[in-house]
Design a binder for these strands. Structure first.
Lengths: 238, 238
DNA sequence: CGGACCATTGATAATTGTCAAAATTCGTGG
DNA sequence: CCACGAATTTTGACAATTATCAATGGTCCG
């Protein structure tokens, strides 16, 4: 079975192959779906979706990462998700004509695949498994958000920042001889917006972690975790 | 078509009638499903589900309300949802053997309906519409959680408390001559745990709202909203 | 190399948490 | 229906944390 799609860029693998919600389908089914897919490129900083847009497609991250956010009443950005490869969004608009509930902005140059609501609904009726996969995926996303809410509820900013570093570590960390190196997807301000604290507070706390020998900051863009146990401690208790 | 189920308590209407996810089904289909349903009663304060439980059913609220919560690292309760009549939970355990991710506790004496995972999966394959309904409902729940997270990011406690009152108003409010009367589902402490602030702070803020003529507190259990515009202002800005 | 942008640091103010005590409310049983 | 004890809530004083503002210092990229 030929798994090369005709989109002109996923040379060795159909992009939707990477998407968990299609994982129960066989090669032929995936090939059929591939033909229904549209592709888009966005540059770093470009807005993929704006809050209030009536998008009529489900959008799948094919390459790079993006942040989903809303504005708080104070005008500050509140980040909700970091979408990485294989993640999707827009499923809320699947049946209802509900509009997009948040902004999505490319954190690097990214590539997306999209599937129209109409096509997607036909798929769902044809392959109920996909529906179950989506329910499963939405459940996971709910769990993650519930965990975020739980962390936000921790009044201690140290814990919250510690948890964020661990999250990033799991998603973007690479093992090196001295510990784990994280390529930060967000600036200090971005992290502050994720945690709901002031930019300066993030600086101070990171400075404090560095003094305590837990991390080493490298050029604003990377952080080296040098003492995993202490980080777990900070994130996990007092 | 007879719509009386044999559960012995929903005399005039099958309980699942109230559940949005079954709303696309006809009377006969609903009757068939009714036979598969189990019923349970819980007293106020009883735990319906504990975090870590491996529940094998989807549970539907039939009467009364319940709170879903997790414990923060500090040992404080963080409330995630208030489930009212027609809401369901346990859908995360639908396919994966994932365990319950939060506690659910009855806020009054409640009645629930449950449907085993096995039965539920069969239904999903038979009626793909139910799957779509669930995706829709989960999408709404995600939106709500995203909004909560957004509010948690608002540093201003006044706004957050104002928003909570408006939420309660929409769910539990009754119009009276002097304004809107809310039967509070949660105690002061409960509200504090929802907002992630100290109990005393909720007291003080409510006192402040009362001084400003926005609300009138009645016996700890009810609040009368006397100045809707001001409340919207507080919730919506400064 | 220079300018724009981002991050850090310091000083101060504002907000909220904590602890303790008093007041109110609730529910039960007489 | 009232009274009493338990539970919850309110209030006050103080401490701790974080936000804000302003100035300085670094970093990135053409």
């Amino acid at each position: 079975m030929d798994t090369t799609c005709d989109c002109g860029r996923c040379k060795h693998d159909i992009c939707i192959h990477r998407v968990p919600i299609f994982s129960t389908l066989n090669e032929k089914e995936i090939s059929n779906i591939a033909e229904l897919i549209n592709h888009h490129d966005y540059k770093k900083g470009e807005i993929v979706v704006s809050e209030g847009d009536s998008i009529d497609s489900i959008i799948i991250m094919n390459q790079g990462s993006a942040k989903a956010f809303k504005y708080t009443l104070e005008g500050r950005e509140q980040i909700l998700y970091i979408f990485a490869e294989g993640d999707f969004f827009g499923e809320k608009n699947l049946l209802s004509n509900q509009r997009a509930t948040f902004f999505v902005e490319a954190l690097q140059d990214i590539k997306t695949c999209s599937l129209s609501r109409y096509q997607f609904q036909k798929l769902l009726y044809k392959y109920p498994d996909i529906g179950i996969k989506i329910i499963d995926e939405l459940g996971k996303r709910l769990s993650r958000l519930e965990n975020s809410l739980q962390s936000m509820g921790v009044r201690n900013v140290d814990s919250r920042l510690g948890s964020l570093l661990i999250d990033f570590q799991e998603k973007f960390g690479v093992s090196v001889s001295e510990g784990t190196l994280i390529q930060l997807p967000l600036s200090r301000e971005g992290m502050a917006n994720y945690l709901g604290v002031a930019r300066e507070t993030v600086s101070r706390k990171l400075g404090q972690f560095e003094q305590e020998g837990i991390i080493r900051t490298i050029n604003n863009k990377s952080i080296l975790i040098t003492d995993q146990d202490s980080l777990n401690m900070v994130a996990g208790s007092a």
